[in-house]
Simulated scan of single mutants.
Amino acid sequence: MANLPPSLSIGAPSTPAPASAPAPAASMDRNMATAEQLVLDLCNPDLRENALLDLSKKRENFQDLAPLIWHSFGTIAALLQEIVSIYPSLSPATLSPGQSNRVCNALALLQVDDPEVIAFLLKTEIIPLCLRTMEMGSELSKTVATFIVQKILLDDTGLLYACATAERFFAVANVLAQMVEALAEQPSPRLLKHIIRCYLRLTDNARACAMLNSHLPSSLKDGTFNDVLQNDLTTRRWLLQLLHNIMSANMGGGPHAGLDHIMGM
């Protein structure tokens, strides 16, 4: 007994060994392995829906997911296939909630801060297709299409593309204005939020901001949507910033007609 370690001697206090926490490196390896498998599943049509859902929910938990998606064989093509596959359902509008969820999950995975990705999407003529859907689609399909345009505009390459010529700017601005006027009759807070964010992003381009002084719908200036936005603090702030940006860019054009109404929301 004398040769036993103190912890095993008779009468010695029994102290359990402390539980070892999982090694951070091992946890990271498991996360990466999971991400890699889900990315592989995107290329399998039978597994793609669940992979889209899991990756969209957990994408912030996976380090280096963006380059993994971009550089893995066939993945970007699979995501683009998801987006393009809904086009026949946009006009006439037959897009189902399930289809909408899938395409939104695919779009969520394309939110990588890489100009190459946006440049690639722009070559697919995605903006003209979205604008047509924003004009003619159902509320659901309009929301999806506007979400796509918003994400493209939030990238510097996408904003430059949309504002490169007057024709492109007016194509976007006119469709946004038509939707705003329609929402004045039949409000949709979710769709209005995306529209206002698109307008706000356009004001980051000096020429576009100046032109919006005469091309922003009056219903965004006169308090028409006060009730719709009453509980949406984020969108209200976006609208105030939008009006402030336009007013600042056009100080010589007189007071902004609707700012007092919006401030009273």
Rank of each mutant, 00 (worst) to 15 (best):
K58N: 15
T146N: 11
D232W: 03
L192H: 04
D29Y: 03
P128C: 12
E60C: 03
G264M: 03
S91K: 08
T224K: 13
K58C: 11
S85D: 09
P13Q: 07
A206P: 04
A257D: 11
V112T: 09
A77R: 15
I10N: 13
L183N: 12
I10M: 08
H71Y: 10
A23V: 05
I196P: 04
K123F: 00
L239W: 01
Y161E: 07
L202S: 11
V175L: 01
S72H: 13
T157W: 02
T124Q: 15
A2S: 02
V144T: 08
P24I: 09
L40M: 07
C104W: 00
D232V: 01
P13V: 10
I196H: 01
A78E: 02
L212W: 13
I246L: 02
S214Y: 05
E135D: 08
L176C: 11
A77S: 15
L140W: 03
I83P: 01
V39E: 00
L47P: 00
N245S: 15
C43G: 04
N250P: 03
P187R: 09
S188R: 04
M32R: 13
L90F: 11
T34S: 04
L183R: 13
P88Q: 04
A206Q: 10
P16F: 10
L109Q: 04
A210N: 00
M247C: 11
F170L: 13
C198P: 12
G74P: 02
F73S: 13
C130I: 01
L80E: 02
N205S: 11
A21N: 05
Q150V: 05
L200D: 02
T235Y: 00
L154W: 05
F147M: 11
P92C: 09
